[in-house]
Simulated scan of single mutants.
Amino acid sequence: MTGHPARDDSRLLTIGGVDLLRVQVGYRRRPGESAYQQSLLDLPVHDEDEHAFEDDRVLSILEPVLDAGADAPRDYALHQHRRHSSWGISPSELQIGLEIITGAMTSEVLTAADDAVTRAFRDLVVLTGRPESEPLSRDDALLRARHSAAAAFEVDSDSLWPATEEHHPGDGSWTVGLRTNDGQQYDVRIGFVDGYAGSARVVHARPVEVSDSIGSA
């Protein structure tokens, strides 16, 4: 029987370990519809052993999110992507996207689902070792809000302008309401995981349709 060849640490083409973890959890009412809410988490990972940080560890932490507040298992789509480059300060990325089909949700069920995402993201922060970060300044919060909305919903960040903003001193997070000239609305909470700047929750509010009812029967 032929054994496996010895690992060659000198080879140039390798996927490497994980330096950056990016997780995105989105809610859709039904398959084929656009998401109405996305939660994002970007975490630097200190993985000295490139086999120590496995995808399954992330998935096991995210699994309770699936059925939080639901009476029956929800349908979902799971995406996983690994990226490695030979340059940059975070050359090796693990990206995991989870899309959950929620159907119509009451406010109580949505709160339970959001709480489950917060707990899962908090556990991932603990797993990777919480990075040191400065308190979020207003300018940083506005910049992160625009970038988060752009990443979550594939819009041009330059088209977004802040309509509202609020700082939450209790946990250091910021709530920013973003708008576009064509009426799109994105409400962003930066630092929703214990004030960690790499966490963002983005809600795409449906634009208000204005109609002229004068003269209508």
Rank of each mutant, 00 (worst) to 15 (best):
R83I: 02
E99G: 08
D114R: 13
E108F: 09
D139H: 05
S107W: 12
T128K: 09
I89L: 09
F121S: 14
D140N: 02
L124K: 10
A141K: 02
D123I: 03
S133N: 05
R82M: 03
I101V: 15
A116W: 03
A120F: 14
A113P: 06
S90W: 13
P135G: 06
E132H: 09
H81W: 01
S92C: 13
E132S: 13
D139T: 14
S86H: 12
D115S: 11
A120N: 10
R130G: 06
V125C: 12
S133T: 04
P135E: 08
G103A: 09
E132W: 04
G97R: 00
H84R: 12
S85K: 03
R130I: 01
S133G: 06
G97C: 06
S85H: 01
S107A: 15
P131K: 10
A113Y: 09
D115R: 14
G97H: 05
F121N: 12
L110P: 00
I89C: 02
L110V: 01
R138S: 07
L110I: 02
R138L: 08
A104F: 09
R82A: 03
L142R: 13
S92D: 15
T118L: 04
A120E: 14
W87C: 00
G103K: 11
S137D: 06
T111I: 06
R144M: 06
G97V: 00
D140V: 04
G88T: 07
S90E: 10
T111E: 13
G129F: 12
T128S: 13
T102Q: 06
V109D: 07
G88Q: 05
L110T: 05
E134Q: 12
G103V: 11
T106E: 00
T118G: 02
L94W: 00
P131A: 12
T118C: 03
I96V: 15
P131R: 11
R83A: 11
E108M: 03
R122M: 07
A113S: 15
L98C: 09
A120W: 15
T118D: 07
E99Q: 10
V117G: 09
M105H: 05
V117W: 08
V125G: 03
